[in-house]
Simulated scan of single mutants.
Amino acid sequence: MKIALFDSADGAARLGVVDDAAGTLVDVTAALPWPHDPDPVTAGWWRGLCRDFHTLGPALADAAAAGTPVPLSGTAVRAPVLGPSKIVAAASNYADHVAEMHDVQERTLGRVESWMMNFDIFLKAPSSVVGPGASIVLPPDVVAAGHEVHHESELVVVIGRGGRDIPAESALDAVLGFTAGLDITVRSAADRSRRKSYDTFTPLGPWIATADEIGDGSDLDIELVCGGETRQSVNTRDLVVPVAQIVAYASSIMTLNPGDLLFTGAPPGVGPISSGEKLEMSISRIGAMDVTVT
């Protein structure tokens, strides 16, 4: 199942089930078993859905089958998450990206930070999330300082039930599904989390493909195109640490709450973005989204 968040006429967040082959969406908000709170700040209904999707899925499927489809082209689809308690991101999780970062760091820092070449996790600010069609805003201080700002297109895990100390063999039981994300990054000597947490630096979308449809996320094609040029193209089979083990590792450090996000790592091909550019990102079996740079 593909589930999306979209804006109603009054701007409130609603829940939809997507038929991307038909290019349609059905509003299934009324199938939720609790009163719908439209406030994206509180977002309790969304976290409840992430936690309980394993039991709510059939009712949502029935509502989608019985509902009236509307064209996606006329629907204001937003980022497919609300109020995550945290964004966890994996670093150095494609071998070819680790190799290219030696040259990137020599150019942007004048040295190679060897500790950054090892797999680990860090945090991004949830306030950096934007949705499909949004603009990535280059911070004036970063531009004035002459720092490069890079695109990093990634498979993103959306946590379902979550938990602490989750075994790798049952990690997918804790996952709601997958979406596409861009981890926009300033190349400077500042702390990694700071460099990746500016407002608009986490575009997500266009919707979530649930784990029962996608599986373990181990055979998905990621592509990023800018101005007709393919800048990133990789399959998630090349992840050094696969999804289940990332979930297990992250949960050994911190409790993963329903609705949290887990970026799985940047593929090779990262590079600078400039004002006026349009980034087109897609992941097979999930979907595609466009964002612009301003």
Score class of each variant (00 low, 15 high):
K2R: 15
K2E: 15
I3A: 14
I3L: 15
F6R: 05
A9F: 03
A9R: 10
D10L: 00
G11E: 07
D19L: 02
D20F: 00
G23S: 09
G23E: 07
D27C: 01
T29L: 00
L32T: 01
P33H: 06
D37K: 01
D39C: 05
G44M: 01
L49E: 01
C50N: 05
R51E: 15
H54A: 08
G57N: 15
P58G: 13
A59Q: 08
A66T: 11
A66H: 06
L72V: 09
S73K: 06
T75G: 03
R78Q: 09
P80I: 14
K86L: 09
K86C: 07
V88C: 15
A91P: 00
N93P: 03
Y94N: 12
A99K: 14
M101S: 12
V104K: 07
M117W: 02
N118M: 05
F119V: 10
L123I: 15
P126I: 15
V129I: 15
V129S: 11
I136A: 02
P139Y: 09
D141Q: 13
V142A: 04
V143S: 11
A145Y: 02
G146I: 00
H147T: 01
H151F: 09
E152C: 09
V158N: 10
G163S: 08
G163I: 12
D165Y: 08
E169N: 08
L172T: 06
L172F: 12
D173N: 10
V175I: 14
G181S: 11
D183E: 09
V186D: 02
R187Q: 12
D191G: 08
P203A: 13
L204D: 04
G205T: 11
G205F: 05
P206G: 15
I208S: 12
L220G: 03
L224Y: 12
T230F: 11
R231T: 04
S233N: 03
N235D: 13
N235Q: 05
L239I: 04
V243T: 08
V243F: 03
Q245C: 03
I246P: 02
A248K: 10
M254A: 14
T255N: 12
L256K: 07
N257D: 14
L261I: 12
L261P: 07
P268A: 14
I273F: 10
S275D: 13
G276A: 13
K278C: 11
G287D: 04
